[in-house]
């Protein structure tokens, strides 16, 4: 069997979430398994060196300008690399890019795909995976019945040991192969014309390690300024509950919960959020949850690590002050 890992880059540097699944792929691979990697997009030389330090056989680079990014072109590159390696397992990151690419290649290879897996293992030669369904209310255990078996791995769930160390004592560097786009490309393409980066100061909730989130209790869009300030003091992002998004106070891209995003930051501060099941499933995997709510009986206090009961319009600015003070003292 062979195993192929699809890696994603940003600004020419391989993303840490991709290195996590590369390590997970190396953990999964038996000692006689050939592991290969393919990169979506163009990598800087230094980042190619990073991947070369992993104990893999082949690195595939795609000869393509990022200016002309088309998901169909990269689908075809992945299929080219597949045809050269014939891996029985293909792993991709559970990110926008990975989750876009995976069903494309699965349909072409007539292969089963499990998306957003939180654990994977080989059992009797087949890939088995656990994945949250109903936004995490239930964990589904699946066995992928096809060859190849394809899986995308959810971010923040594969922080296992880094496998670069396996290279120590081994002289062999991976082979680097450059794939050329087929000359006769079909016209069935979607072309990326523009990327509009969010202009807001606070970062995106998906990758944030600290999130300050507001719900119905914020009472109006103008009051999110105090959450922005707390988030800035904590170097975090601002999220919102469905109630706040449905009221038009915040954009849907900030929504956390079953019809929004699932997040697992180090710290999640829920302000004026009751903690309904739809919201809970989107943030329950946070390492530490703080709830600020005027209602001592709000469901959020049943699963928050720390709670403060009271008026959030007094508590949040005071908390921001305290955080600034403490951070200032820490230098």
């Amino acid at each position: 069997m062979g195993l192929m890992v699809v890696l994603e880059q940003r600004d020419g540097v391989v993303r840490s979430s991709s290195l996590e699944i590369l390590s997970e792929g190396l953990r999964l691979a038996a000692s006689d398994t050939a592991v290969s990697a393919i990169i979506i997009g163009t990598l800087l030389e230094a980042s190619i060196r990073t991947i070369e330090s992993y104990d893999i056989q082949t690195i595939y680079l795609c000869d393509e300008s990022d200016k002309d990014y088309s998901p169909e072109n990269y689908r075809d590159f992945l299929l080219q690399a597949y045809a050269l390696e014939l891996p029985s397992v293909i792993l991709l990151p559970g990110t926008d890019v990975g989750n876009d690419m995976a069903p494309r290649i699965a349909a072409h290879l007539d292969a089963g795909l499990a998306t957003d897996c939180i654990s994977i293992d080989m059992s009797d030669g087949a890939l088995e995976a656990e994945r949250p369904i109903f936004a995490g209310k239930i964990i589904q255990k699946v066995r992928i019945a096809t060859n190849p078996a394809i899986a995308t791995l959810k971010r923040n769930f594969f922080k296992g040991p880094n496998f670069t160390s396996r290279l120590e004592g081994k002289a062999k560097k991976p082979m680097v192969k450059r794939l050329q786009a087929a000359k006769e490309t079909s016209t069935v393409r979607s072309t990326l014309r523009e990327i509009v980066r969010s202009k807001r100061k606070s970062s995106d909730v998906t990758g944030a390690s600290i999130i300050v989130s507001g719900g119905r209790g914020m009472k109006g869009p103008e009051n999110y300024a105090i959450l922005e300030e707390l988030a800035a003091a904590l170097s975090g992002a601002v999220g919102a509950s469905r109630a706040a998004v449905d009221a038009g106070w915040r954009p849907h891209s900030d929504q956390i919960g079953q019809t929004g995003k699932t997040v697992s930051p180090e710290l999640y501060v829920a302000c004026g959020i009751s903690g309904a099941i739809q919201h809970k499933v989107g943030m329950i995997n946070s390492k530490c949850i703080v709830a600020i709510n005027h209602d001592p009986n709000a469901p959020i206090f049943k699963f928050a690590d720390y709670g403060i009961v009271g008026d959030l319009f007094q508590i949040i600015p005071a908390l921001t002050e305290e955080v600034r003070k403490v951070k200032g003292a820490l230098g």
Binding site: A106, D110, A111, G112, L113, A114, E128, E130, P132, G136, K137, I138, I139, Q140, K141, V142, R143, I144, A145, T146, I284, I289, P296, F301, K302, F303, A304, D305, Y306, G307, I308, V309, G310, D311, Q314, I315, A318
Partner: peptide, 24 residues
């Protein structure tokens, strides 16, 4: 089917936390 569902489980239950206090 390309995927066989072999079972289901509930996610681990989070240990209940505590109310630190009231107000500022």
């Amino acid at each position: 089917n390309t995927i066989k569902v072999i079972g289901f489980d509930y996610p681990p239950i989070r240990a209940p936390g505590r109310i630190v206090g009231t107000g500022v």
